[in-house]
């Protein structure tokens, strides 16, 4: 799967990391990426509100989804998907790209912009997001000079991210 770009948003919607891996999208300035991040954060929140209004008897709401997810973990003893984005905006499909949003329990959002019309895209993106989350935990969270919710400027993280997406 060709991944054009990845973004990482903190829990307040601020852009803390942006990496254009492969050219193929429009050239955006740093300020444009900040606006894009804020827009996606807002749309994600509006999506959560909207999905609860569409909700009827057959569809569980966010709390029930979380309770079911926790029950599965307790009964099986195995960790499920790390993606806690269950009610908000998850995926955008357009003619030229697809955009996927992964949200952690702590509210961190990973965004991936890929080529469109890819088969089995959900499983591939879930795996890529999981590896990206592991890299974030290893090279950003364990960096003593990193302040939480500030932009990521780790060259180790940059290198490993490029390496991860070069082989995918």
């Amino acid at each position: 799967m060709k991944v054009y770009s990845i973004l990482i948003l903190n829990k307040a919607g601020g852009l803390i990391y942006q990496n254009e891996l492969v050219p193929g999208l429009s050239k955006l300035s740093a300020n444009d990426y900040l606006v894009l991040a804020g827009t996606l954060h807002g749309v994600h929140a509006i999506g959560s509100k909207l999905s609860s209004t569409i909700n009827n008897n057959n569809n569980p709401n966010g709390e029930e989804l979380n309770a079911a997810h926790n029950a599965i973990i307790l009964s099986s003893g195995k960790a499920g998907s790390a993606n806690s984005n269950r009610t908000g905006l998850q995926k955008i499909e357009t003619d030229m790209f697809n955009l996927y949003i992964f949200q952690t329990v702590s509210g961190l959002k990973f965004i991936m912009i890929t080529a469109p019309n890819v088969a089995n895209s959900e499983t591939v993106t879930d795996e890529l997001f999981r590896h990206l989350y592991i890299l974030y935990s290893d090279y950003v969270m364990k960096d003593p000079f990193y302040s939480l919710d500030m932009p990521i400027k780790s060259s180790l993280f940059d290198g490993r991210v490029k390496q991860l997406f070069a082989q995918s």
Partner: peptide, 15 residues
């Protein structure tokens, strides 16, 4: 949501 996503789609499309 539609308005915002349409804006994002057009902005990110290749020039």
């Amino acid at each position: 949501i539609l308005y915002s996503l349409k804006t994002i789609s057009n902005k990110l499309a290749n020039d």
